[in-house]
């Protein structure tokens, strides 16, 4: 058994009367891409929020590489190697795609010289390659507000990758992308993640994507992990077909 990169132990939180996490236990192993599926409101995004320190659980701990990070601020967890891409892309709206990447590189390197032009940073080429990888090299110099939702989502992922994380959490990475391009993009992404030694966790509604690109699947329901296994096991399970996949089709 490989080492756990991230481990959640007994996470619990409720909002008002709604249980968003109810004794969530989950090990994310290095190099094994995990898909999180489940109906809307099952607590999938809440789980990502807790893992990254955005919200604090009432009970339970989050361990990253064996260290307790439950009470840390998101920025401190990010600096330890957990990056995140969002369901609604979180970009700097007054900047171009390339500038968004360079700002991420600035954050990673912590360059302080006030006289260095950000555009002259040595990381520029690396950032250009990342943009190329997600197929956004041709819009590198366009302000991100002018781009399509799908392009913004990809740039959001590229920004997260610019941090060179060990673990990347993605909330519905292909939801804004045309279905004809989904597989192509996931193909590129998963390859790139493997090459960069990044383990990915992604919330996903498209079972085709889950089947092809996840090494493991965790099924969420009513704030808890209902089931866990390989895509082959999970996607054939009658409960999953009834509770999750059925809803997706509907």
């Amino acid at each position: 058994m490989s080492d756990a990169l991230l481990e959640a132990r007994g996470l619990e939180i409720r909002f008002g009367g709604v249980v968003a996490a109810d004794d969530v236990n989950l090990r994310i192993e290095e190099g094994r891409n995990l898909a999180i599926i489940g109906p809307n409101g099952a607590g999938k995004t809440t789980f990502l929020n807790i893992c990254t320190g955005w919200i604090k659980p009432t009970r339970g701990t989050v361990l990253f590489r064996g260290k307790d990070v439950t009470r840390l601020a998101p920025r401190d967890i990010v600096r330890r190697g957990v990056a995140r891409a969002f369901q609604i892309p979180q970009l700097f709206t007054e900047h171009t795609a390339m500038e968004n990447m360079l700002i991420a590189a600035s954050a990673r390197t912590g360059r302080q010289s006030p006289l260095l032009d950000m555009h002259d940073m040595p990381e520029r080429e690396e950032m250009a390659r990342l943009l190329e990888m997600v197929g956004c090299d041709r819009v590198a110099d366009r302000p991100v507000v002018e781009l399509s939702e799908g392009q913004r989502k990809l740039i959001d992922i590229a920004v997260a990758l610019a941090l060179k994380p060990a673990l990347l959490l993605m909330d519905e990475p292909t939801s804004g992308v045309a279905s004809s391009e989904k597989f192509e993009i996931m193909e590129i992404l998963v390859k790139a993640l493997g090459r960069a030694d990044v383990t990915a966790v992604f919330v996903e509604h498209d079972m085709g994507i889950v089947e092809n690109y996840a090494d493991e699947v965790a099924v969420w329901n009513a704030g808890a992990v209902q089931m866990r296994g390989t895509p082959q096991e999970i996607l054939k399970h009658p409960d999953v077909i009834r509770d999750v996949i059925g809803e997706e089709i509907a």
Partner: peptide, 15 residues
Amino acid sequence: TVKTNETRLEYLGVS
């Protein structure tokens, strides 16, 4: 970037 997106800034590891 404090002007446009502090959420992303935080998730870049910056205070």
